[in-house]
Computed example of a mutant assay.
Amino acid sequence: MPALRPLSLITGASAGIGAAFARELAARGHDLVLVARRTDRLQALAEDLHQRHGAQAHVLPADLADPTAPRQLVDALQKQGLTVDWLVNNAGYGVPGTFDASDWPVHADFLQVLLNAPTELAWRLLPGMRERGYGRIVNVASLAGHVPGSAGHTLYAASKAYLIKFSQSLALENRHHGVHVCALCPGFTWSEFHDVTGTRALVGKLPRFMWQDADTVVREGIEAVERGEPVHVTGRVNRAIKALAKLTPDRLALWLSARESRRYRQLD
């Protein structure tokens, strides 16, 4: 059974889906560990959640592009005597343009944040969850991990596909230990993501029915991990896209991906 007030660690908690997770979990009686680079935003969010829900929110600023950050975060938790019941690996971003358009350190930082950091945090926090017989791990992946790769943002879909497979294996290994693992796979979500990548004007041309708000995505994710669902694609439209992608022959799927990439990917 979880603690009276479970403790949830959320990466990328300063905005978007991460902040929505913080709001929803606080409303459900969780205390929080908020992790991101922007200390001012984390502190403002922590104060708001304490006033609204009585949640105790610990602010731990960190740059997950630093390979030492996951270990330092867990060390800081241990020093404060905090045990994590929920881990939400949400931190992420996109690198616009083609693969050769960015220097290697840019890609190295991306891989550290989207692959290494969530994997290491799960590895460091999972033993305590298993020992206590309760835990929840949500890896925020993407519909992009289920469909053919696109030109531009070259590593994004690949990293999300990794999180999906990783979550499936981790879920199978821990389902008899009271630990549920879920790869949450939203499609286009209203957030700062596309502003940061500079693709807001492009994706803004997509029809509104393809979009979800972050709060809806988060509620679906929480319900899915509680059910023990290893992978959850949010929204009927996104689930239909996933199903069509699986049924479409590879050559046709790649042709469609190449055509559609121009609508929402920066290719220079």
Results as ranks from 00 to 15, higher is better:
Pro186Met: 14
Asp213Gly: 15
Gly133Leu: 09
Cys182Glu: 05
Thr197Phe: 10
Ala22Met: 06
Asp195Ser: 12
Met210Lys: 08
Asp109Gly: 14
Leu114Ser: 03
His153Leu: 11
Leu64Asn: 10
Gly204Ser: 00
Lys79Glu: 14
Gln51Thr: 04
Thr199Arg: 12
Gly221Phe: 13
Leu115Asp: 01
Arg251Glu: 04
Arg175Asp: 05
Arg262Met: 00
Ala91Asn: 13
Pro105Lys: 12
Arg132Cys: 06
Asp250Trp: 06
Lys165Thr: 07
Leu115Gly: 02
His176Trp: 08
Trp190Asn: 08
Trp190Phe: 15
Gly235Ser: 12
Leu125Gly: 07
Val33Glu: 02
Ala55Gln: 01
Arg263Thr: 09
His30Tyr: 15
Ser191Arg: 07
Ser14His: 06
Pro6Ile: 07
Ala26Met: 03
Asp195Gly: 10
Arg37Asp: 06
Pro118Cys: 13
Gly54Gln: 01
Asp75Pro: 02
Asp100Thr: 03
Glu229Gly: 01
Cys185Arg: 11
Leu202Trp: 06
Val74Pro: 02
Leu126Trp: 09
Leu7Cys: 14
Ala76Lys: 10
Thr68Lys: 00
Arg41Leu: 15
Asp100His: 06
Val88Arg: 04
Arg52Tyr: 04
Tyr93Arg: 00
Gln168Gly: 15
Glu131Ile: 02
Val196Thr: 11
Ser167Ile: 14
Val59Gln: 08
Tyr264Ile: 01
Gly204Tyr: 03
Asp109Asn: 15
Arg265Cys: 15
Asn89Pro: 07
Phe166Ala: 08
Met210Pro: 05
Gln51Glu: 09
Tyr156Asp: 03
Leu143Phe: 07
Ala46His: 05
Gln51Leu: 09
Asn89His: 12
Val95Tyr: 08
Glu173Trp: 09
Gln266His: 11
Ala258Trp: 11
Met210Asp: 05
Asp195Lys: 13
Leu155Pro: 02
Trp211Glu: 05
Val217Phe: 09
Pro96Asn: 14
Leu42Met: 04
Leu126Gln: 10
Pro6Val: 08
